[in-house]
Design a binder for these strands. Sequence first.
DNA 1: TTGAAAGCGCTACCAT
DNA 2: ATGGTAGCGCTTTCAA
Lengths: 330, 330
Amino acid sequence: MVKLKDIADALGVSLTVVSRVLNPKPDKYGFVAEATRELVLKKAAEMGYRRNRSAEFLARGGRSANIGVFLPLTANSLIAELIMGISEGSNRHGFPVNYFFGFSEESYMNFFRHVSGNANSAMITYPSLTCLRLLHGTVAQYIAEGGKVAFIAPYNFDFQYDGALIMGVDNVLGGRIAAERLIERHCRHFLNCHPAEQLDGLRSRGFLQTLTAQPVESDEPAGILKQLRKWRPEDFSENAPLGIFAHSDSVALQLMRAVRDTRWRVGGNLLIIGYDNSFLTDQLPVTLTTIGQPFRQLGETLMDRVVELLYDRPVRSEMLAPFLVPRESA
Amino acid sequence: MVKLKDIADALGVSLTVVSRVLNPKPDKYGFVAEATRELVLKKAAEMGYRRNRSAEFLARGGRSANIGVFLPLTANSLIAELIMGISEGSNRHGFPVNYFFGFSEESYMNFFRHVSGNANSAMITYPSLTCLRLLHGTVAQYIAEGGKVAFIAPYNFDFQYDGALIMGVDNVLGGRIAAERLIERHCRHFLNCHPAEQLDGLRSRGFLQTLTAQPVESDEPAGILKQLRKWRPEDFSENAPLGIFAHSDSVALQLMRAVRDTRWRVGGNLLIIGYDNSFLTDQLPVTLTTIGQPFRQLGETLMDRVVELLYDRPVRSEMLAPFLVPRESA
DNA sequence: TTGAAAGCGCTACCAT
DNA sequence: ATGGTAGCGCTTTCAA
């Protein structure tokens, strides 16, 4: 493996100069003549130099060059895609990663203990809203002490952390896209099926905002099912179907399952839109129309910006746009 | 963060001695008096010492302490669980990881280039059989040069690598479990639905071995569907259903979808068993009976053994047992 | 059985 | 604008 010294020797300059050119965060004496800089850059590319992150961070006084990542302990495609994106980014930058998974505050605390022990550490975390509320103090303190944190926030993020990075997918837009699809498919009545504990109503907000003029009821799955039993399927048709926005593919499947052996026909007089574009939803007996989230891209972008954070460069928070995955169910 | 020097100072011994006790791979002069050893061990635990892997491997002449992992680019629950297991293990051992995803030989080669550049490197790889066949030479050479590789092999592994670790899930047993379930549910006729390109017939083997006395046909999905159209559903019943073993949940869903609006009743006169216990298969209109694979456990065990490999300690290859996930479809 | 010291690849201070 | 060098935490050789 080629190292700084090799480049320096090949060029007949000092190791220090080479370091200053290639160092992502050069020292304050980091003035290098433009000609020298270009020479070094060229030689480095030519020799296929790849930075040794371990040595870099050891020298910088940190423990290691690892980036810690905390994700929900859910083995679904969204998480898998996020991991793929983050990994893609981390490999590109030459950073290794430590993934932690969990739901509880304990697991989040445990993660924090592990990662924050390292000076120069950075983390990507995807905590539940409850979890974050409980551990707000810990997080705030860590950031105040110079820790770098990037949040994946699917909810309305109302915490004020100076310099923290917040990224996610625009759930309000997701709700809006669902509503627009149902309108386009001639729905007249709408049901908004949110999770049992609706901690944050971004998807609802987008859905309801788009449907101010139409009759729409919001409820959790149990309530929606009751509603379905009350209404008569005969009163709906392909020309004027009932439209349901389920806030997850899982809930969408629950509903599909519940109307099995009734006169509701999913994709006919009953349209259902899910959320997440989960693995296999394209192979269901009635394939599921759903809102896709670009989690792979989210992961990649996130990692790019965390690296910026790590070197104290300014970064910009951003929400990515979800997209419709049109299939049979709506 | 407490380091070796801290322990040495606290105990009034030299740093070297402390290193020798705590070093996972002590030098050849590594003789420490039993009394001293215990003292060091006790102090280290007391002070909460955590080894700095970057420094360890930097000193050892390697580039870094990272372990490279290559996995199929498939965002399904199996891969997600594998990652969770591997991460759990790597965190326990204090090793960071670099994950790579792909299918093609190019991606596998790219992975290899990245990871093998590092002396002291180790990798966990889950290549397709075709991929491995194509790159057999590269892999063999890497291992011959002292590289440590752990394979996840779902197929019949007929390569001879000295000292390589091969782990996986026992697919023959998986096939057997499926057959036994269908027998128990009174099936008389059986279909074995393998993938279009059946590269390795371990699942088939287990299935067919258990059903030597019964009529069973093997085919790829298209053929199985043709067969289903030829037979009359009326000739089968809950007391003597037709039993299908699909080699993946995806194929199982394809079949379920194909018999929609026919007189085949999944879970009634037609029993279907899938493979993988994918996310959401427990929430289908007819929930899917499937063969689960303990990939989380596989990942953890794998990482434990790779660390052993890394320090040149002997390891044992092993196949884990799959398990039945009984639900409505069979 | 123990300790001193060189060195892994890199950064960052000081001097020039 | 460039170079020399100490030191990050650890391993390993050599000497005691």
